[in-house]
Design a protein around this nucleic acid. Structure first.
Length: 610
RNA sequence: GCCCCCAUAGUCUAGCGGCCCAGGACGUCACCCUUUCAAGGUGAAGAUCGCGGGUUCGAAUCCCGCUGGGGGUACCA
């Protein structure tokens, strides 16, 4: 048993892998070796004793009733819903905790208003939301999803970004119970409004010897780094100010010298924590830095703000992107320095760009707002995104929001990075448009895109609006052909305008047919159109098939010129249903126009020949 | 450089020691349906389970190493 607290509470020594003595190791997540993080002799009931003592396999049947549904979870056999895992090392008696089976689950999504919301962030938000509202509730726990704005970087602040995040999150179908706009018992929910809190906590850490004032200038830091690089040493702050005498600090402070607050990382030993989806991760403290907690401008860094807020807001599970794993040991140490209970950590898997690396504009849309304006449905995007790193079983792929609330579990989230596949997203979007959405729903959703192209009234999304009634039958015909909503103007335009789309006259002439014959056919079509009832598709089709016969043409040879004349395109829905929806008057006008166009085209061709 | 994470077809994944000479989906290709394009149906190609050792009667599954990919390395989050 490596790195595992046994049932009796004994801590087995961690064996370092040969050749990696300075590095970390981790407990295998599948073996169920989970460090309950108690010091020797501490109360072992903080970890479910069954979990601590039983072999991994037999544990699974011992899960709480609410966690048994669906396929077996594949992450470490941590009691995932026991939130207050005591701080992660043995020097200190962990704080007492409330009954894990009834403690409400509180999670948060904490974007930074430095720009548009990225898909990766949105997926983290989705997983987090599903955990609170699905998994937690299934286990009989209250689940609260908190929205917090992390705007402590005053330089990168983008005006309007916060509102844009609210907006796109709402579009994505994520609701928050506490947040800047809705308030809540743990506010304010905007970090810039909590600056005093962070300062006080930083002072507390200094007083307790866990942090110190650092007067080193950015210039000196850069110089230190240069020297380290030149000597090929690991780079990092050299801790020059760590040993400063109290009097000197006071004097320099009094002199108004600018300073930051740094955390005093233990110089040796190790820091370990359990990542819910990866298992235990161990860091050697010697490799960790004295990171800045409070910046020169008085604002906290992410590290301080995050820990203070998560604790004050009673967050039980920290879900965030994988880029935070390397700073997790600092956070663990901070919780301990404050004497606070450590929330459960769960770092989501990375989303990679098609060629590898980070997803960027070069590959396509990256911001949620872009996906929205490109005509992706929020439910399709959610369905695609949830499957990027999570799966329910071997075959299910379409999940409604309700399905997800019923089936999603953080434990089945994969640790390995996933490549973003635009083609597959597109497929999901098609699935929802073609087969999931009802006709009225789809009609309403297409309206903003058509309105932007000036094709319908923006108010037409209302089913009572006359444009809605005009639009709906056309949408019915093109439903199976729309992949993204932004294609609507292109696909539906000729139903909404009086004329057909502009087209190349030669498209009117079918294969193996001359211009004259085509013109004759078109004139015959015009006459036939006069006498036919377009509302009766079957009869119309029969009549036109007969006409083809009379003209000595194959049906297809007749239908294509009609299609082009009536729509301006070679690819449409069924010809007769299309004509029905366009209506006789407009069809007649368009066929007549086509005949005219063809005649002129023929004249031009003749004169060109001369 | 240092630290950490990850590793099943081009991509997303199922798989938790025998049911797997590996299942599903996207993409690709073919055929069917057919007035065009879709949708739908059927089928095919595509994975020496990254490589090498080990444990075991038996390994995609457990262990070790290597390699590869990725993340972090800020008074950004």
């Amino acid at each position: 048993m490596r790195g595992v607290a046994s049932a009796s509470g004994d801590r087995a020594p961690i064996r370092q892998r040969p050749g990696r003595a300075a590095g970390g190791g981790r407990t295998d997540r599948r073996s169920g070796h989970v460090d309950c993080r108690h010091r020797v002799g501490s109360r072992s009931d903080r970890c479910d004793p069954r979990l601590a003592s039983m072999p991994a396999r037999s544990r699974r049947s011992d899960r709480p009733a609410g966690l048994e549904r669906g396929p077996r979870p594949r992450s470490p056999a941590t009691a995932i819903l026991a939130p207050y895992v005591p701080a992660a090392y043995p020097e200190k008696e962990p704080p007492s905790m409330t009954d894990p089976s009834t403690t409400p689950v509180r999670v948060r999504f904490a974007p930074s208003p430095t720009g548009a919301l990225h898909v990766g962030g949105a997926r983290t938000a989705l997983f987090t939301w599903l955990f609170a509202h699905g998994e937690a509730k299934r286990a009989g726990r209250d689940g609260t999803f908190v929205l917090r704005i992390e705007d402590t970087d005053r330089n990168r602040l983008v005006p309007g970004a916060t509102e844009a995040i609210f907006d796109v999150l709402a579009w994505f179908g994520l609701t928050w119970q506490e947040g800047p706009d809705v308030g809540g018992p743990h506010g304010p929910y905007v970090q810039s409004e909590r600056a005093d809190l962070y300062r006080e906590h930083a002072e507390g850490l200094i007083a307790a010897g866990h942090a110190y004032r650092c007067f080193c200038t950015p210039e000196r830091l850069a110089e230190v780094r240069r020297e380290q690089e030149a000597r090929k040493e690991p780079t990092g702050y050299d801790r020059r100010c760590r040993g400063l005498a109290g009097e000197e600090v006071a004097a320099r402070l009094a002199a108004g010298e600018r300073s930051v607050v740094r955390f005093a990382m233990p110089l040796d030993g190790e820091t370990r924590f359990v990542d819910l989806i990866r298992g235990e991760i161990v860091y050697q403290n010697a490799t960790l830095e004295d990171l800045v907690l409070l910046k020169g401008d008085g604002f906290p860094t992410y590290h301080l703000a995050n820990v203070v807020d998560d604790h004050l807001m009673a967050i039980t599970h920290i879900t965030r992107g994988p880029e935070w794993i390397p700073s997790a040991p600092l956070h663990v140490r901070l919780y301990d320095a404050f004497g606070w209970a450590m929330p459960v950590l769960a770092h989501m898997p990375l989303i990679l760009a098609p060629g590898g690396g980070k997803l960027s504009k070069r590959h396509g849309a990256t911001a949620m707002e872009e996906f929205r304006s490109q005509g992706y449905l929020p439910e399709a995007l959610a369905n695609y995104l949830v499957l990027l790193g999570w799966s329910f079983d071997a075959t299910t792929e379409l999940f409604s929001r309700e399905d997800l609330l019923e089936k999603f579990s953080l434990e089945r989230v994969s640790a390995s990075p996933a490549t973003f596949d635009y083609a597959k997203l597109r497929w999901f979007n098609k699935q929802y448009i073609n087969h999931v959405l009802g006709l009225d729903d789809l009609t309403a959703r297409v309206v903003p895109f058509l309105a932007a192209a000036g094709l319908v009234d923006p108010a037409a999304a209302d089913a009572g609006h006359p444009d809605f009634a005009r639009l709906r039958p056309a949408v019915a015909l093109l439903k199976d052909r729309i992949e993204t909503l932004d294609e609507a103007p292109e696909l539906l335009g000729y139903f909404l305008r009086d004329e057909a789309d502009p087209y190349d006259p030669t498209l009117l002439i079918p294969k193996k047919l001359g211009l004259e014959e085509t013109l004759d056919a078109l004139l015959a079509v015009e006459r036939t159109l006069e006498e036919v009832d377009l509302g009766d598709e079957a009869a119309t089709e029969a009549r036109f098939r007969a006409l083809a016969d009379e003209l000595g043409l194959k049906p297809g040879q007749l239908f294509m010129p009609i299609r082009v004349a009536v729509t301006g395109r070679t690819q449409t829905a069924g010809l007769f249903e299309t004509m029905r929806v366009i209506g006789r008057e407009r069809c007649l006008g368009r066929v007549a126009a086509a005949a005219g166009v063809l005649r002129r085209h023929g004249d031009e061709a003749l004169s060109a020949d001369d």
